[in-house]
Nucleic acid binder design. Structure first.
Lengths: 199, 199
DNA sequence: TGATAAACGGAGGGTGCCTCCGTATATTTC
DNA sequence: GAAATATACGGAGGCACCCTCCGTTTATCA
């Protein structure tokens, strides 16, 4: 089962790896722009490969959605790790949320497209949301340990609040509103009111 | 413009009215079951009319979505009115939210399908959300007036909290979780802790 | 430098989207 | 009650997308 133990089989072909990469990049762009109605044939065209190639790499619509989503989550987790060195935990939390809002914004349609098909992907979402959770709780815990953030809010609640606030019907200025509300929320989390200067 | 003043033109044909009604009913069922991927031809088939008839009544995909959605909102508003006679305002609020969760649950896919197309419908959503708002604030105000609910939460905030809590990735037991969280929220709204018995 | 496993591309059959227009019928008029 | 006509109806047709299947191409291995 383990890839490392499969010495007997050939190693993956270079064009296969390259095309998979191109497809993921193209899908990210197409989904961002087109939302749920995005056509898989458009993705293949943008990637410069045949439609058959797309379907070999990602047998179902769900598979390619998930692959792109997983990549987004990776970036959010990485950003959280990078922000772990920030001097001010509340500020780090704000920055992480701001960046994540941008991702949620561009990927909103994708997530919307995903939910109806999620019957078989419960475990996939359990996994990714666990990773998101540990990213968010890393930032939160550090702030609590430093005595800079309240200790009566769990990472789970923080995530729910984050997603809930992001879930606002879009109108002009949408993202600004969300960012402001999130800042207010984090200000409320802070034990020290001085964080309010930023925004 | 007013229908009543149009005495000069013929009155609408009976079959037209009947078919429109059938289409709306069929659309409600198909969208509930199938989500955003639901086919308009399936709606026409279910309604027992030709596809052309569907498109004459609802020229765009958006139009039929909106008509169904408007009907749902009507029911939520009516329910709020009916609940206005409940003795316990907090209980009325809980009941309204429970029923609304059920609607959000079945219509989730529909709403998801709507958001990407919402460019031209900003004013439509402004209208319906205004009506939802007055329904919710009716229930809220009555509780505040009776001294049974806190007065520092606006209807707008209540609605945002309601929608935010509803926005949870679905997993088994999903709706139960939402109902419980909503109850907790309303309990928190109550000035008198005794309401906690229900649920 | 072959041999060949693996990947590639795109034709093709099916479905849905939406338009258009010839046909059918409900309403009105006489 | 019958003719006139405004109105609505149905579905064919052209286009895009979905997904499968398989003949062709090519990267790897010996």
């Amino acid at each position: 089962m383990d890839v490392e133990t499969q010495k007997t089989s050939r190693r993956p072909r270079a064009d296969s790896i390259r095309n998979r990469e191109r497809l993921l990049e193209a899908a990210r762009e197409v989904f961002s722009a087109g939302g749920p109605g995005a056509s898989l044939e458009a993705v293949a065209r943008k990637a410069g490969v045949g439609i058959g190639t797309l379907y070999r790499h990602f047998p179902t619509r769900e598979a390619i959605f998930q692959a792109v989503y997983r990549r987004e989550v990776d970036e959010m987790v990485e950003l959280a790790d990078r922000l772990a060195t920030e001097p001010d935990p509340a500020d780090a939390l704000k920055r992480w949320m701001h960046a994540s809002v941008r991702m949620v914004a561009t990927k909103r349609g994708m997530l919307a497209a995903l939910s109806p098909v999620m019957d078989g992907s419960t475990e996939f979402f359990a996994d990714t949301s666990k990773r998101l959770m540990s990213a968010i709780s890393g930032l939160l815990d550090r702030g609590v340990a430093a005595g800079r953030l309240r200790d009566d809010i769990t990472a789970d609640e923080l995530m729910r609040a984050f997603l809930g606030i992001c879930y606002i019907p879009e109108k002009p200025g949408w993202q600004d509103t969300v960012v402001r509300l999130l800042d207010v929320f984090v200000d409320g989390l802070a034990t020290d009111r001085d964080v309010r200067k930023s925004g």
